[in-house]
Amino acid sequence: MQHTATISRMKAAGAPPRLSAFAQWADRHFKWLLVAPAVLLILALSIYPLLFSMVVSFINYDFQVPGHAFVGVKNYERVVFDPVARWSLVLTACLSGLSVAIEFVLGLLVALTMVRSFPGRGVIMSILIVPLFISPVIVGQAWTLLLQRPFGPTNYILTQLLGQEVTIGWMTESPWLYVSLIIADVWQWTPFMFVILLAGLTAISPNLYEAAELDSVNAWQAFWAITVPHLGPMMLLALTFRLLDAIRMFDTIFIMTGGGPGTQTYTASYYLYTVGFTQFHLSQATAGSWLFLIFTALVVMLLVRRLLKAEPV
């Protein structure tokens, strides 16, 4: 241990030099200056465009019809009465709901297998998260390579496994193209569920399970009595975040099916994209995107409210 020598008073260093007028001003408004760049950027590239699109949705803004006349709610009517628009909304709900449900169950199962540590866990962990860092475009491309006829090996493998000729048009025939899209989504995003749920699972104290084991509770009962309640907030969070991203589904469709055949794989985003950027009915697309925005906002309000109440750790 050190010992203090004689202490004597030093010369006072005094207060630091006075600040310049600018520095004083900056110090006083420090907190607002820090948020300013981010807030201005978001205002400029998110809020301003939204307001602008609000205007556009009520006027004529169409590369095929000249002039910018006020047209009232006609753009909205066009979307609402377009059967393709309604179909795309239904498809968006079904595809995203189904994908997220599968991702959730699969992610939870995989997370359960990974809770306890075992040799090689770190490496497996690193492999399992890889899809999260890949562009959805590439994911679509990868599954195209696997599924596309005649090049893809999938039909060949199925033929060998089932012992009978399989010739499915994975990206052209009706139920199968949805299966393909869901598989691609599940492949990319199951790790998302897995990572979050695993974090939640590892946070549950093992003592709880040991206590349950002493009470001779079986694994299934322990899952419902301990895991589910403790994991609840985390599940809600994972589902919310994932669902809000899933309803934007666009990239894989663009690559794998191009919305087709016909309009069979039009999701909301894809529909609006085609209206806006291949047919150039920009004001109609804008009106549609406002409607979609309102749907999303409703979902956000419902889910995020719940989430904030649940207060995850």
């Binding site: 699109s53 609006l272 806006g276 979609f292 925005l293 995020v304």
Partner: peptide, 23 residues
Amino acid sequence: LSFWVLSQRFLPPIGIVLPVFLI
């Protein structure tokens, strides 16, 4: 302010990208 920023994360890009394209 913090939740306003958070809400930006959940805006569907299609809603933004059309007007941004025009701008």
